[in-house]
Design a binder for these strands. Structure first.
Lengths: 160, 160
DNA sequence: GGTAGTGTCTATAGCAGCTATAGAGTCAAT
DNA sequence: ATTGACTCTATAGCTGCTATAGACACTACC
């Protein structure tokens, strides 16, 4: 019993427009149509869409998913690439976490900079104006502390 | 001595097109022009652009920066909103970190799922196909484990 | 004066991954 | 016959830029 697009959307938790978008992007094959041109989906399409959604939830982009689907459709080749892809994503996620943790420290320093309750003299506005003066990253490279790079280096030790 | 757009770009570390874009978006005021219609920027513009760039590095979007600039331009009102904005960003960054850490666990589980070297029988593809079976979030809500929500709940305890 | 190389101008389109809108057709129930 | 929910296509919008095209401006050198 084939499904209409709205039913597939409910089953998969994504929107009707998104399903059509995936079709346009070549992630889902063009489905059967009724006499009145409605799309009809099979169990296989449901599985495929679930696969896609799970990949998206794992932070993969559509190009990567396209490749993964090709591997899945043609399971004769080595899956080393799949391992590499996941490794790459892990490294990516780790670096995102690191920079967010760094950013958090800066935001907290920024938050503590405000003592008054008027913009005139507000430490937050001041910090954004002149630099964050965060001590958490004196040793390491940090664009939030070093910004603006070229201008400040004009009277510091520049390219050494 | 006023600056041309390319000089401002170098000073601020952002691109010429980006400066023009900020002008179009109302973050930078329309600058003076030479006879030959070149933009000319003052020290004040340099400061303003630095402010904008620093805000961007703190993860603020252009709408928020627009508001911050309005506060800066009109420093008579309370800066409670500024505090709230930063608080909101901290909370936001924290939740991003949490979900990335969660995602990382899932990706690592996924990575360990592959034992062979062919797609046929590749645990990664299998996991993406049928669910990740990660034990790290049995108790808590996790879209990566519970997906697809409605379909699986059809034969589990649903809305109850 | 000519010309090469760089910088600047405007306007428009593209990126990712959808989301929203308009205007028309389809289907089941009343 | 009509209402309401669903579907269709095509197009534009979202964010924060980036890239491209085609024209004009400026400097240096011959």
């Amino acid at each position: 019993m084939p499904l209409k697009i709205g039913e597939l959307a409910k089953l998969s938790g994504c929107q009707v427009v998104t399903i059509r978008y995936y079709e346009k992007e070549g992630l889902l094959p063009p489905p059967e149509r009724t006499n009145s041109n409605y799309r009809l989906y099979s169990e296989g399409d449901v599985e495929r869409l679930h696969f896609i959604r799970r990949c998206r939830l794992h932070g993969m982009n559509l190009a990567e998913i396209r490749k993964l689907l090709a591997f899945k459709d043609n399971p004769t080749v080595s899956c080393a690439w799949v391992n590499d892809l996941v490794d790459k994503h892990i490294a990516d996620v780790e670096s995102q976490i690191a920079s967010l943790q760094h950013l958090k420290k800066h935001l907290e320093a920024l938050r503590h900079a405000c003592t008054g309750d008027h913009v005139q003299g507000c430490g937050i506005i001041d910090s954004l104006d002149h630099g964050s003066h965060c001590t958490c990253c004196e040793e390491e490279h940090c664009p939030l502390n070093e910004y603006p790079a070229s201008a400040d280096h004009a009277h510091g030790e520049a390219a050494k």
